[in-house]
Computed example of a mutant assay.
Amino acid sequence: MENLFNVGGVELPQPFKARRLGHVGFYYDDLAAAERFYTDILGLRVSDYLKFDPEQPPAAIFISHCTDHHSMACISSGLADKCDVDYLRGVTLNQISFQVGTLEEVVNGYRFIKERKIPIWRVGRDFPGSNWAFYCRDPDGYHVELFYGMEQIGWNRISKPVAMREVEGEEPSLPQRSEQQEIHDALNDDVELYEGHKSEDLTSSDYVVGGVTLPRPFKVNKVGPVHLFVRDVEVSEAFYHDLFGLVVTEEVVWRGHRAVFMRLGADHHVLGLYPLAMRQELGFSELTTVMGTGIEVCSYLQLRDAVEYLDGLGLKRGPKVPSELLPGIDHAISYIDPAGHCVLLYFSMEQIGWDGKPRPAQQRRKIEAPWPESIAALSDTYADQTLLGPIG
């Protein structure tokens, strides 16, 4: 009989439920170049910097497309040289982070993973971002985070002030103060709440996007999925399924190689696992074991306009991946970031219903070349969760 855990009154195989891919982090030799790529070019915004010395450049840059404090972290590779034993063999992914619904789940998840002798990287509360979390290593050395309580940044674009950053480096004790209580206590301590980092994108708004003027002809709607090259797909699949509760949506065999696509919710997948042997065959950089990260824009029209815009900037395109190796993703095109990571731009992710079955491959859209001006709607077009609030 399988041992089940009570998670909010529901019996599950793990003592937590990973709800979504929250954010990803990558190492960069040139943080300034990474910042320009993701902000000036792709339109995300800087929400915070991590500095160990006020007189020195930042050690990390936190970037967001939404109200989450960050959906991407750009980390100095100098930190990887000091603390990440797998960096030198190409593990340039600093973290892949899954969100749970409660702090209790983080604590129980930490104990669950630790009891199974999985290497723990760190545990506690992270700043910038305010989230409680623990990190462990997967079989390839990728850091996997389970977190709760990501700081939210509202209309004024101001992050929490440094004075409210109470870093914790151990298993959280329960219960903790609510965020409302933290703010109340900070006010009583005369903390100036509006001294956090404020992001601004004051470049000219030359493009009309859905009736709103923006600096670019598109708006990033989501970060993810993450696609990784791994040494043993079967071992990695078992790790993410048995320990973190991801479910296999689909597997694809290509030229004798088996790739697996795993989900958390209705999106076809948040994680793609490809055998490392495919990296050279597909033409990806041998400097990184990361195949790529998806970035979703809000519509097919925006995707077409984004391609024209990014090609016009002279951005380097990534390898062309056969469509069967990107199941669940409709029209897509990739570009290369400053560290050689592939960024996959797309507009639509197939949605999985209550029965857990993906759309049969023969019923998926056939991608025309060149792309037409408009395309027919599918049953799940615009059905996935979308960006709430103003697009700019």
Score class of each variant (00 low, 15 high):
residue 109 G to M: 08
residue 141 G to M: 09
residue 122 R to Y: 05
residue 142 Y to G: 05
residue 120 I to N: 03
residue 131 N to T: 10
residue 126 D to Y: 14
residue 113 I to P: 02
residue 123 V to D: 04
residue 135 Y to T: 03
residue 126 D to S: 14
residue 113 I to M: 07
residue 142 Y to E: 00
residue 138 D to M: 07
residue 110 Y to I: 05
residue 116 R to C: 06
residue 124 G to H: 07
residue 115 E to A: 14
residue 135 Y to C: 01
residue 139 P to I: 04
residue 132 W to V: 15
residue 112 F to L: 14
residue 109 G to T: 12
residue 109 G to Y: 04
residue 142 Y to A: 04
residue 134 F to L: 09
residue 115 E to K: 12
residue 122 R to N: 12
residue 118 I to N: 01
residue 113 I to E: 03
residue 120 I to C: 06
residue 130 S to H: 15
residue 136 C to S: 13
residue 137 R to H: 15
residue 142 Y to D: 03
residue 117 K to S: 13
residue 117 K to M: 15
residue 109 G to E: 05
residue 129 G to Y: 10
residue 119 P to F: 01
residue 114 K to H: 06
residue 116 R to E: 09
residue 126 D to C: 09
residue 108 N to P: 03
residue 115 E to W: 01
residue 128 P to W: 02
residue 122 R to M: 13
residue 118 I to M: 02
residue 113 I to T: 09
residue 113 I to Q: 00
residue 127 F to Q: 03
residue 136 C to W: 07
residue 138 D to E: 11
residue 126 D to T: 11
residue 134 F to N: 10
residue 133 A to W: 11
residue 108 N to E: 08
residue 137 R to T: 12
residue 125 R to D: 05
residue 124 G to P: 06
residue 127 F to L: 13
residue 136 C to L: 12
residue 133 A to C: 15
residue 112 F to C: 07
residue 134 F to P: 11
residue 109 G to V: 07
residue 129 G to V: 08
residue 119 P to R: 04
residue 123 V to F: 01
residue 119 P to K: 10
residue 123 V to W: 04
residue 124 G to R: 10
residue 129 G to A: 08
residue 138 D to S: 04
residue 138 D to I: 05
residue 135 Y to K: 10
residue 114 K to D: 08
residue 136 C to G: 07
residue 122 R to Q: 13
residue 137 R to Q: 14
residue 119 P to V: 08
residue 128 P to H: 07
residue 139 P to M: 01
residue 133 A to E: 12
residue 110 Y to N: 05
residue 125 R to S: 01
residue 142 Y to C: 09
residue 141 G to N: 10
residue 120 I to Y: 03
residue 125 R to E: 06
